[in-house]
Computed example of a mutant assay.
Amino acid sequence: MIRLRPEIDDDWWEVEALFDLCFAPGREALSSYRLREGIPAVAGLSLVARDENGILAGAIRFWPVRVAGQPVLLLGPVAVHPTHQGEGLGAALIRDGLEAARQRGWRRAMLVGDAPYYNRFGFEKLQGVEMPPPTNPDRVLGLELVPGAWAGVRGKVERWSEAPDEIGD
């Protein structure tokens, strides 16, 4: 049985090792990492999945960013250990994380990813939202956690500059 719970400080090294295992070397060279540097992941939204023996099976992190001055939740990375892929664990991490974000008052989320995978969670290509280069604009996807939350929100994705608990618009 797999249990999901919020990531804690003691999980950090294991989660980083899982991300290293699941993603290509140099993952930290991606533009999304420039937005995350020195900014803590949003506590309570970043989740880990552990099996009945306490072994890490998956993880997801969420980061605060801004677009046009508005708070946005940046989803990623999300990873599932190869021994647990195909079990729906990634989808559970995404759904539970997004639901926790809604409950905590976040209005919009975004990510850089494959539309065919993320469309099933409600993510769609964002128009007029620019990730730092070299990001393919077709992979910049957004989700309204509150209806209409992306309306009129256009511009460059920027680093967060306040405590991640400050999410009001």
Rank of each mutant, 00 (worst) to 15 (best):
R3E: 15
L4S: 04
L4Y: 11
P6F: 08
D11H: 08
E14I: 08
V15T: 05
V15C: 00
F19W: 15
F19S: 02
C22T: 05
L30A: 04
S31Y: 08
S32Q: 12
E37S: 12
I39K: 11
A43I: 00
L45P: 01
S46T: 13
L47E: 09
N53H: 07
G54W: 12
G58D: 14
F62W: 00
W63R: 10
R66T: 04
V67S: 06
G69I: 03
Q70P: 02
P71C: 00
L73G: 10
L74W: 07
L75Y: 00
P82Y: 05
P82G: 03
T83M: 00
Q85Y: 03
E87I: 04
G88N: 08
D96S: 08
L98S: 05
Q103W: 10
G105I: 12
R107Q: 04
A109R: 09
M110Q: 07
L111G: 05
V112N: 04
G113R: 02
D114M: 02
P116Y: 06
P116L: 02
N119F: 01
F121W: 13
G128F: 09
E130M: 12
P132C: 08
P132T: 07
P133Y: 06
T135G: 09
N136G: 07
L141Y: 06
G142I: 06
E144G: 08
P147D: 05
R154L: 04
K156N: 14
V157M: 06
